[in-house]
Design a protein around this nucleic acid. Sequence first.
DNA 1: GCAGCCTACTGAACCGGGTAAGCACCCGGT
DNA 2: ACCGGGTGCTTACCCGGTTCAGTAGGCTGC
Lengths: 352, 352
Amino acid sequence: MTHPARRLSHRRPTIADIARRAGVSKGAVSYALNGRPGVSEETRRRILAIAAEVGWQPNSAARTLSGALCNVVGLALSRPARVLGIEPFFMALVSGLEAELHAHDYGLTLQIADGHASELAVYRRWWAERRVDGVLVCDLRVDDPRVPVLEELGLPAVVIGGPGHTGDLTSVWADDSAPLTETVEYLYALGHRRIAHVAGLSELLHTRVRTAAFHEVTSRLGLSDAITLSSDYTGEAGARITRRLLSSPNRPTAIVYDNDIMAVAGLSVAQELRVDVPGELSIVAWDDSPLCRLTHPALTALGRDIPAYGALAARRLLDVISGAAPAAHRDAPAELTIRGSTGAPDAKRATR
Amino acid sequence: MTHPARRLSHRRPTIADIARRAGVSKGAVSYALNGRPGVSEETRRRILAIAAEVGWQPNSAARTLSGALCNVVGLALSRPARVLGIEPFFMALVSGLEAELHAHDYGLTLQIADGHASELAVYRRWWAERRVDGVLVCDLRVDDPRVPVLEELGLPAVVIGGPGHTGDLTSVWADDSAPLTETVEYLYALGHRRIAHVAGLSELLHTRVRTAAFHEVTSRLGLSDAITLSSDYTGEAGARITRRLLSSPNRPTAIVYDNDIMAVAGLSVAQELRVDVPGELSIVAWDDSPLCRLTHPALTALGRDIPAYGALAARRLLDVISGAAPAAHRDAPAELTIRGSTGAPDAKRATR
DNA sequence: GCAGCCTACTGAACCGGGTAAGCACCCGGT
DNA sequence: ACCGGGTGCTTACCCGGTTCAGTAGGCTGC
């Protein structure tokens, strides 16, 4: 690349400087600073004192070059920026990742890619240039093409998602099936018989899992009017689908949305159409972010501790990097928090 | 650190391997791969062909060690995770940064700190360990303590915010004064005489700028009831303050919120209190994210192209890294988009 | 009294690139 | 015939750590 005029400020001290001042060799300094045997306690203390005095910090490039890890992990996201921007999920995940990585002196590098192909190119480059020790993979799909490539590269990775479809890679996942079933049963108990499910991107594994669970429970309960509609997680899609659902004959009395953004948009459409929530329509959001408490009525939501999920993923990735065998780690499932957006359907108004 | 069993996969090819296969020296390979003079066209082609064939990629640590830049910039954020999570601003900024950095083969490392002290510690470490070539600084404060430290470190930096208070650091900023003035004048023209401003964190420079502009325009227009209240950008704070404002005697007929989250919360409180929007209360949000279009009515908002702002910041940081002199770069100001949440105050209902 | 061993260190190689200096070789001019 | 000056390449060393194979010196044991 180019070679800009580099401001020299003050040249950083190196172990050679420390060695000179301590009157020992570079090797001795290295042993002392890394807490390894090979120097006397007294010499070690002297070297550490000098290092502290001159403000020495190891040059990460030099360390990495001589075989060490680079203490960085990568996260590449393929969703378009406009979705990433509003979904609180990712920032919450990142903050959890970050906290755990930071505690282990690891850094996080972030890259926003546009599609699986460019995401895979990012992984290849990161690994070839030795820029990361491992990566975190989000938005797992059914038969995800990234899995075999990562396996072949030998790049340590943790897949955030499951169950299954992760090959021999380590994964971190939560069961979405039981919470969805519980939610539908709760709506059924309230008296709802026409329930709709506004799902996320249909190629994502967890969309499949939730959709399957929805079909299973609704057919078990004999709800023939149950319907699942796919979307792309945006508010626009949520609004559009809700408008369609609410203007259909035999409209649903309850809708379960696969993320909070769509649920908020759905609530707003209901208000626009003067459909009372929860009197005529109950709304449940998947992902319980502060957003769900901002609306009126506040949204009943399926929430999980996302930062903790991120922290778990980070911890498992560090394990994989230090040689742990692949495993699937199950996190706590989402829990339903009841708020004002759900209730018994108002018999007079909802029926027609 | 520890030395884990590293999976060797296949040893990455180095320039020495290429040199051997091409029957030339390492030096010649380096010249060829970097497009520098010193090798014949024919040899260069042969070397490039071999490099492509074996899939050679430069080892970033080796490059960095021999004096090159590391092609990474850092972003440390000090806001608590729960705020970062819902504010679409940061992800939008990051996506703009990312796009521009990626185009110049630069990576982004992200760190969430808890407070200025630990943020500064992050900068020091990044710089001492040569992990970044420069940093981006957000949430500029009045007399920000980070500025002198960064200047002293000699760490290339671009401050996102202003005007002023950036010392000799390069900055990227947008004028918030004119848009706020324009907004108040618009509300005045609609007939509003009691206008409130729900500001963000009072120590942030842009909060000061907006608050000053609000005072200036309201006193110029002779609005004695104008009031500014500070908050922390969370929905809870926005709701609390709105509740207080709306239940006061002589309640405002229009409120300008310093972010979209608070505006959404404010709208929801108005609905809860059966205050008609925009009939009895007009609402304007600063930051026009998709969130503003999700509510009913949709929010009139002051919006800017945040990804473009991020891209500008990234571009300027790359300039600084390659030796450009410090400068303050002004970005386009926010523009007011009128939607359903503002209108003329309904004389009968709003007066009392 | 000296082999044997441990401790505490030194010296040098190594990681994988970049680069300055040196050196053949060829060509053209006088 | 000889010098000058470019090509086109090699050699050697640098960056700042880690690490391995010595080695000097002291202590122990018989």
